[in-house]
Design a protein around this nucleic acid. Structure first.
Lengths: 151, 151
DNA sequence: TACATTTGTATCGTACACGATATAAACGCC
DNA sequence: GGCGTTTATATCGTGTACGATACAAATGTA
């Protein structure tokens, strides 16, 4: 079989492992997030807001690489759950400011245990700390490249 | 700020980079796949079928870590595009055999150039071949772990 | 051989992603 | 100050993902 076609195997590409690892990671988080009654993308938005409690849709989108067509409905669901508020900015009427409610702020304490629990479940695994660090470094570099390539 | 809460930052976790890298990778493929008139998940299914031209829905699902609730509609779309056929197995009437049509088989030649074109666009980048190989190794290991953890 | 259990697909409902498009506010420039 | 352009969201349509459930065929077992 020619080399050219061999490259079409799943194992020979990076795309599939990334896609699968991402989906599997979400699955790992799901039982913990069910406790908080939020989804994984909603959790990402909450993390961004816990860092800065008031941000525009645009700000959040830049951090998560998402646009309003994804964020607007997601934010409306978070608003329905009373975790955030959405208000038009007075300074710029085009902009929507997203801010944490008291309830949204309080959810942070409940969420704080999640990273540890996830990490703990990887403690006994075959990936050394050094390997993990190197992996994260490359992943970061890769993200930078991908981000440029996709404009 | 307590350590516990610092862990809730995007940068401190693996989950977000994986999620973002996966989505960005899909975006990189999109213009190439538009030429073939298929989506990225459809491309994955086609790759699996190019390797073995006849497989059950279950077989495909095991390779892509997807279940019938995702695959059935996706396969129906590929069938509408006349790239695959779906027939009930005679040996086991529960099973649906997915097979390539002539057109589906021929698409392979057109798709064969994609991996090279993607790779070429990364040629001049800051990730060395060794780093790339190490990354893929860890990603593979990670997938194994995640796969177990998520049952 | 009856019948409970398992297996392989399919269906349904919800929630992302994302390209394309719409719309109103803000900005730039003459 | 009028007006074309840019910017910030929102809406719409399509296509995944995936938990829950349905259902029929196959299997195991008393």
């Amino acid at each position: 079989m020619p080399d050219q076609l061999a490259k079409l195997y799943l194992e020979n590409q990076l795309c599939f492992p990334l896609y699968a690892a991402s989906r599997l990671t979400t699955k790992i988080y799901t039982p913990y997030l069910n406790e908080l009654d939020i989804t994984y993308p909603q959790y990402l938005v909450m993390m961004v807001l816990w860092q800065h409690p008031e941000q525009s849709v645009n700000d959040i989108g830049h951090k998560l690489l998402l646009e309003s067509n994804t964020l607007t409905p997601l934010l409306k669901r978070l608003e329905q759950k009373k975790l955030i508020k959405r208000t038009r900015s007075h300074k710029d009427e085009r902009s929507v400011l997203v801010s944490l409610t008291q309830e949204g702020l309080e959810l942070r304490e409940k969420a704080a245990v999640i990273p540890d629990q996830i990490m703990a479940s990887f403690q006994d695994e075959s990936i050394s700390p050094e390997e993990g660090i190197a992996f994260r470094e490359t992943l970061k570099k890769l993200m930078g490249i991908l981000r440029e390539k996709s404009q």
